[in-house]
């Protein structure tokens, strides 16, 4: 059941992405511009994750390669390196995003402020999901 969900997830994300993108175009002027931007951004992010997930699932590996890949995924040193790199990049990109957010709020505002807010929320969500995933693997 868990494996089935794991295999289906990229396809679900890919389909949901197209639903969101199509909804943005179909609803057009009927919804607020900010909401339209949020829908489109989420659609774009899901499209990226879905496409990458589908592409990775299509890669065929020999049993030895598969075993080696799984071992490297669970290897405690690799997990520690990935976690450290993710923490570091998340920390610095969050600082940069906040700087951009402040500059936009002060000098530009409006739609760009909303866009940066969405990116900051997605950035934090990505971090939380990955930390949870890596903690489970360790």
């Amino acid at each position: 059941m868990k494996d089935c969900l794991k295999k289906a997830a990229p396809y679900v994300m890919f389909a949901a992405a197209w639903v969101l993108i199509l909804a943005t175009f179909l609803l057009g002027e009927r919804i607020k511009e900010q909401l339209s931007l949020v829908l489109f951004t989420l659609g774009g992010v899901l499209l990226g994750f879905g496409a990458v997930g589908i592409a990775l699932s299509r890669i065929r590996m020999s049993p030895e390669q598969q075993k080696e890949y799984e071992r490297s995924e669970h290897d405690e040193r690799n997990v520690a390196i990935r976690e450290k790199a993710a923490m570091s990049s998340w920390y610095w990109t969050l600082y940069m995003l906040w700087a951009v957010f402040m500059v936009i709020q002060i000098f530009v505002g409006g739609l760009w402020g909303v866009a940066v807010s969405v990116v900051i929320v997605l950035h934090c969500t990505f971090y939380m999901i990955n930390i949870h995933r890596w903690n489970k693997k360790m």
Partner: peptide
């Protein structure tokens, strides 16, 4: 011990300290 060869290399050279489990 179900780790990568790189981990063994790092352990032997002292660049990485193993967890209690490893």
């Amino acid at each position: 011990v179900d780790v990568t060869r790189q981990t063994i290399i790092s352990l032997e050279s002292g660049r990485y300290n193993a967890s209690l489990l490893l």
